[in-house]
């Protein structure tokens, strides 16, 4: 098991948002977290990455607790996080954005830029363009590339399709599947497009009001009438 979130209670200040959530990700899996707005999906990812105060419970990575680790230590351990919005450095070029993904690397060797440009060909010709001048979909590619440059083992994606046009939504989700297949990176993803996300996921979790409501394979959740009625819009 690559990631284990055990009975986590977390939140901002005195307010708890997660009330005892447990989630697991196995090696090579795509796992989706779906649920209504404000259910704590994003907070779950942020808690794993140490951006939200963990008050109770534990986060284990390959069996070791990572509760106390800073984000740059987590990147060194092989975790990578793509935030939902503002996830590129607008005044840096595409290539510089990718370089920042490899900041912690001591060796200034030629990183896997080719790998990223092969995955996202449109970025190659835009490598010297400032990321702030790209379209929403291209920015998302840059954000993915930045997160993948160190060849992480676990990729955390916070609503990767938020604000994208329908054309790009499918394209980005297909890329997630492709990246998972080609590099073997495990993916834990929070998604608004619940049906599309569950369809491509090995397993899924449905959260509501900071608690886990359902947990099953992606397909089973899609077929579950209760889940469909309550959370997937019929």
């Amino acid at each position: 098991m690559i990631l284990q979130v055990k009975d986590v209670v977390s939140g901002y200040g005195d307010m708890d948002i997660l009330h005892g959530i447990s989630i697991e990700v196995n090696q090579g899996e795509i796992v989706s977290i779906v649920g209504p707005n404000g259910s704590g999906k994003s907070t779950t990812l942020k808690t794993i990455f140490g951006l939200v105060n963990l008050k109770q419970g534990e986060v284990l990575y390959y069996g070791d607790s990572i509760n106390q680790n800073t984000p740059d230590q987590l990147v060194g351990l092989g975790l990578s996080f793509v935030p939902q919005s503002d996830n590129v450095f607008p005044s840096l070029t595409v290539h510089e954005n990718l370089e920042m993904g490899a900041f912690i690397s001591k060796t200034n060797k030629k990183y896997r830029f080719d790998l990223i440009y092969d995955l996202f060909p449109p970025l190659k010709e835009k490598r010297k363009t400032q990321a702030g001048n790209l379209s929403g979909g291209q920015r998302q590619m840059v954000a993915f590339g930045r997160a993948l440059i160190m060849e992480p083992e676990l990729l955390l994606l916070d609503e990767p399709t938020a604000g994208l046009s329908p054309l790009y939504i499918d394209m980005i989700l297909e890329k997630v599947a492709e990246i998972n297949k080609e590099t073997g990176v495990s993916v834990l993803m929070v998604e608004q497009n619940a049906k599309k996300a569950l369809k491509m996921s090995d397993r899924g979790y449905v959260l509501a009001a900071g608690q886990k409501k359902y947990e099953d394979t992606g397909q089973a959740l899609l077929n579950n009438e209760e889940v469909a009625q309550l959370f997937l819009g019929g």
Binding site: P71, V75, N87, F89, S91, F103, R146
Partner: peptide
Amino acid sequence: TKMGKAMRAMSDNMDLAKVTGIN
């Protein structure tokens, strides 16, 4: 330089810089 680029990155977005692994 990597450090100079990281300065510009942090000036753009401090939170993202942290998440990216920039010290």
